[in-house]
Simulated assay, not measured.
Amino acid sequence: MNLSTQTTFIKTLSRELGFDYCGIARAQRLDDDARKLEQWLTKGYQGKMGYMENHFDMRVDPTLLVPGAKSVVTLLLNYYPEEQQAEGAPKIAKYAYGTDYHLVIREKMNEFLYRIREKIGQVEGRGFVDSAPVLERSWAVRSGLGWVGKNGNLIHKQTGSFFFIATLIIDLELEYDDPFAKDYCGSCTRCLDACPTGAIVDPTLIDGSRCISYLTIELKDELIAPEFRDKMEGWMFGCDICQDVCPWNRFARPHQQDAFAPIPLLLNLGTAEWEAMDEQFFRTLLKNSPMKRSKWKGIQRNIRFLENPGKI
């Protein structure tokens, strides 16, 4: 197979596996991103996410993850839901309504690599979705899939930002897409203006330690700092504020993935039900949910903080 045929096969296969968009970039060290990442870490914007400091070289050089890597294939999978939570319920980020995306996408990526080898021959590669030190958004931009908005999210011009990003690094040479060269945010500042905790320090510069998603998921402290009192706006797990206010998400359309259908009961549970939930029921209800990341103890902490900010 020549480069064109191989590339067409890869992109056709991505659609067969349910991905919405596929872009391909040449595997190379990301020197500019390395400098930006180093500055971000120096400012302490990772908060207590110590893992962000690990494997720095791997984050910026795909050949350290896959020796001999030639191509980085970036895949977008829509998760925008048709359903909404009951009014007044503790808020859950839309990506967490259904089955854990790690489980869903990992299966797709395994199938992707298997099908490539079946058609093309022995190809070495690895698929990633939040599972290794990969700068997914940078590769998405280099693959022509969109630009990084002021809220730090990848924005696709046709359908917004409610996407999971998966990355396949392979030692197969392909035809490469042109990088996405333009920023279409313009003078809009809706996400900066709407963020209640001031986590968007400057356009595309996010203080992760102030993000509501960090505070409700990544932060494992028993207390959420009192400075965030009355700034959580009802969010119990994650936060969608900066995406909900983004004008580009008026183009978002409901996903077609059965696995992302809301877990029964999840959208209708109120504060009282979450407070009364014991750990065993939590584990049963959310056994395949990304909400497991916060654990029962974390969800209980978050609920208490919403009800009585600054105290446990």
Rank of each mutant, 00 (worst) to 15 (best):
L3R: 14
T5V: 07
T5R: 11
T7C: 08
F9S: 05
T12S: 15
G18M: 07
C22N: 13
G23S: 10
R26L: 06
Q28T: 12
R29W: 06
K36L: 13
K43S: 08
T63I: 04
V66L: 04
G68N: 15
K70R: 15
L75I: 00
L75R: 07
L75G: 01
Y79F: 02
Q84C: 11
Y95H: 12
A96C: 14
H102P: 05
L103C: 00
F112D: 07
K119L: 09
Q122W: 11
P133C: 02
V134Q: 06
G146Y: 02
G149W: 01
G152T: 09
I155M: 11
H156L: 03
G160T: 03
F164T: 09
I165L: 10
D171F: 12
D171I: 09
L174N: 04
E175A: 10
D178H: 10
K182R: 08
D193F: 04
A194E: 06
T197Q: 11
T197I: 08
A199D: 13
V201R: 11
I206M: 13
R210I: 01
K220T: 13
L223C: 00
I224N: 06
A225L: 08
P226Y: 02
P226A: 14
E233G: 00
C239F: 07
C242I: 02
Q243E: 08
P247M: 01
F251E: 15
D258R: 15
P262G: 04
N268I: 08
N268S: 15
L269F: 02
W274L: 10
Q280I: 08
F281T: 01
F281R: 10
F281I: 07
L286D: 02
S289N: 05
Q300G: 12
N302L: 07
I303Q: 08
R304C: 00
L306M: 12
E307Q: 14
G310A: 11
I312W: 15
